[in-house]
């Protein structure tokens, strides 16, 4: 479980996150939603330890990140996997080398063992016969799947996905969503997904947190999201007239 306790974050005097409190449970797909610039990515990067929080704390299974020394922080990072918005695959490495990279850096596995594990992860995300290709030679959807394979290579306890569907067509988006959901349940991972894709919200959102201008405005499930009474959330969810018509029809 990941607990976010009263997290504040500011950049050069500009307050980006204000008193964020949240709990993310294992085996569930936790979604953070909000408009672009609302602070979702900053929150995710704070949780991932890529940004230091201005105040507050983040606890990973009751282990406080603020209380950890550098060695402990480095160790806990090995329990995390992250899928970045653009995939962030290493351009100069092949697909297989990308997945083998964390294994080579942090395990004492032999080359054959690393290759077997990489192939297992690639098979798990349905990437076949692309081991020797470079990231530039595969599609955006494949890049995202390779990024997921790399993120799960070390059997992480925590998985973070920053807008995994951005730039993908609706069909591929659903494939990626389902993959994240399956992996979360299969390995009992605490997964946090940043998204503003309402398809993802409805398909995989076990728990949803709505961020608005750096504040947590709402928390609930995908079943509750259509009738929250929170104006900012309604404006976000029912931004198009079609969605408003759909809501009125449902009512």
């Amino acid at each position: 479980m990941i607990e976010v306790r009263n997290v504040y974050k500011e950049f050069s005097g500009h307050q980006v996150l204000n008193d964020i409190c949240a709990e993310f449970e294992p085996g569930k797909t936790n979604l953070t939603i909000g408009q672009s610039g609302s602070g979702k990515t900053v929150l995710l990067k704070c949780i991932a330890g890529l940004h230091a929080v201005s105040s507050g704390d983040i606890l990973y299974d009751n282990r406080s990140f603020a209380a950890m020394n550098d060695k402990q922080r480095k160790a806990i990072r090995k329990e995390m996997g992250m899928v970045f918005q653009g995939g962030a695959l290493f351009d100069s490495n092949t697909v297989e080398e990308n997945v083998m990279f964390p294994l080579e850096m942090f395990t004492k596995m032999s080359y054959e063992e690393r290759r077997d594990r990489a192939n297992f992860c690639l098979k798990r995300v349905n990437i076949l016969n692309a081991n020797d290709k470079y990231p530039a030679e595969i599609s955006g959807g494949m890049q995202k799947r390779v990024a997921i394979a790399r993120a799960i290579a070390l059997n992480p306890k925590y998985l973070y996905c920053d807008e995994p569907n951005s730039g993908l067509d609706p069909v591929t988006s659903i494939v990626i969503d389902n993959l994240i959901k399956e992996i979360t349940i299969e390995y009992n991972i605490t997964t946090i997904v940043n998204t503003h894709d309402m398809n993802s919200v409805m398909e995989i959102g076990d728990k949803i947190i709505f961020i608005y201008k750096g504040h947590k405005k709402w928390e609930g499930t995908s079943a509750e999201i259509f009738d929250t009474g929170v104006k900012e959330l309604d404006d976000f969810v029912f931004a198009s007239s079609r969605m408003k018509q759909l809501r009125d029809l449902n009512r």
Binding site: K45, A48, G49, L50, K74, A75, R77, K78, M80, M82, F84, Q85, G86, A88, L89, F90, D91, F101, P102, M105, F106
Partner: peptide, 17 residues
């Protein structure tokens, strides 16, 4: 610079490298 703006540097940091 390209590695930085495409978040490859963040990916390394994320892994603890």
């Amino acid at each position: 610079g390209t590695m930085r703006v495409t978040e490859q540097v963040d990916a390394l940091e994320m892994m603890g490298v």
